Every structure is written in structure tokens, then in C-alpha cells.
Amino acid sequence: MAAARASIICYYDVISPYTFMGVKLFNRFRQQWPGVDVTFKPMLLGGVMNSIGNKPLFEFVSKREHMISDLDRISAVTGVPFKFPTEFPVSTILPMRVLVALQIHESTEKYEQCIDKLFDEYFVHGRNISKPEVIQNALTPILDSDVSKVQSYMQLANQPEVKQAFKSNTDEALARGVFGAPSFIVKKAGDPENKEHLFFGSDRFEMIAAFLGLPYPGLIPKNQPKL
């Protein structure tokens, strides 16, 4: 059955600096795409890459140096604040499982606010998001200033339900051909075949917009001077 609305699924892991930038830009652009259903799915990026034999950029000195310079340029052009963290990489299993639990039990709005906040903690403020106290301090204001609620989600992160959901998301991403992050699974509205299309990377939004027939405002905000 053809979908009545276009849809975009974003597979992400908060360890990825390009995913940080991609999610920030996606959230900016999607404000002009009200007819598109959006879902953020947490996956284990390391698990995906290990499964296909891929290696992260930071393992190669020249690629790591380019990555940092490239992200700084993107930040300057787009106005998205960014600072490469001193501690990189760190384990994101705990924060990602917390996000899985939040997606299951909280509203979409609060879940997405928590994604955004954890990204900021790491790639703007340089705080080690593998640490429970950093997660607690970041998410408490979003979750009604209820410390016990955040602690309960960190406990849920170790429960079979959440572990299995996280693994299922990762397996699902692999089955859809995902090989890195950010990855976007895009469907056109009214497609009789309900076909999925994979777009990879933080620089594919112009292509996604053109594919779906949507407006593309460009990388530079209206109040941002061109370089």
C-alpha cells in the first residue's frame, strides 16, 4: 500500500561528529517540510561498521585531521556551533541505550530534545557523555527536572527490553544497507511500490529535498554572512 506521506528515518549514533552536524542541519531543514514524517532511530555505529568491515575516519591520521578541519568549515558556514571534543572517541553504549528507553517511554518531542542535548554536550561543550553524571545533568532539565526519572532511564538501559531494541535497530539498519552515520531512509509519498531510498552523509539534504520535491533553504542561514 502506498504511503500517504513522505517519510524519512534517520539512523544515528551520538559518537559521530558528522551525524551531529547532519542532525542539526536536518532539524533546521525539516521545519520547512511539514508534510514529511520523521523518525530518529538509535543504532550502534560501531556494530554496523564491524559487521561490514568498515573502519572509522579517526583511525587514519590524515583523515582525522581533515575531518576536524572540514567540520570547523561546516560550522563556520552553517552557524552550527561545534568544537571537536578532547576525549574522542568515547563509548556511547550507555547514552544510546538511554535514548532507546526514552524513545519507548517518552513523547517524541522530549526524546528528540534529549538527542539534541546529548549531541551538544559532546560536540559543543566537550563533556564525556559516556559518564552517567554527564547524562544525568544534561537530561534532567528536559525531563521535568526530575533526577529520579533520568536515573530510572539509566537503569532501564541495562534491561533486556532496551538492549534488544537497540540491537534490533542496528540489525534493521544493516538489513536496509546502512554502512555509516548519518543514514537516511527516504520514501516518497504515493509511491505504489513503497520503495526505500538510502541517502548517506550530512551533505545530502539538497539531494533529499530535490528527490522529494521539497524546498531547500541552503546551508547558510539568512542572518549568516557568507564567507
Rank of each mutant, 00 (worst) to 15 (best):
224 Q>T: 05
6 A>P: 01
122 Y>S: 02
59 E>F: 09
179 F>Y: 15
224 Q>R: 14
126 G>E: 07
85 P>F: 08
152 S>T: 13
58 F>W: 15
56 P>F: 07
32 Q>I: 07
7 S>W: 05
59 E>S: 13
212 L>R: 01
147 V>A: 14
10 C>F: 10
51 S>K: 05
188 K>N: 10
99 L>W: 07
91 S>P: 04
203 D>S: 04
87 E>C: 12
60 F>Q: 09
89 P>V: 01
150 V>C: 05
38 V>L: 05
223 N>T: 08
173 A>I: 13
97 R>L: 04
35 G>D: 06
55 K>M: 03
142 I>W: 00
18 Y>F: 08
82 F>C: 09
169 N>Q: 04
105 H>L: 03
217 P>I: 07
118 L>E: 03
211 F>R: 10
215 P>D: 09
61 V>Q: 15
81 P>T: 12
126 G>N: 02
204 R>N: 00
77 V>R: 14
112 E>A: 02
224 Q>H: 05
147 V>P: 14
162 V>Y: 09
34 P>H: 05
167 K>V: 11
115 I>N: 04
153 Y>M: 02
147 V>L: 11
222 K>D: 13
68 I>T: 04
18 Y>I: 03
68 I>K: 05
184 F>S: 03
160 P>F: 00
135 I>N: 13
141 P>Y: 00
153 Y>C: 07
15 I>Y: 02
179 F>I: 10
104 I>V: 14
133 E>V: 11
204 R>P: 07
143 L>Y: 13
192 P>T: 13
194 N>Q: 10
117 K>M: 09
148 S>I: 09
223 N>S: 15
36 V>K: 12
221 P>K: 09
56 P>E: 01
144 D>T: 14
77 V>Y: 11
73 R>E: 06
143 L>C: 15
197 H>M: 14
63 K>A: 12
103 Q>D: 08
40 F>C: 13
74 I>W: 13
210 A>C: 03
181 A>G: 10
138 A>L: 00
66 H>P: 03
113 Q>A: 14
188 K>L: 11
213 G>Y: 08
175 A>Q: 12
91 S>G: 14
84 F>M: 15
190 G>Y: 00
68 I>N: 10
30 R>E: 14
67 M>D: 02
180 G>S: 04
201 G>P: 09
52 I>R: 07
197 H>V: 14
218 G>A: 03
107 S>Q: 06
164 Q>C: 08
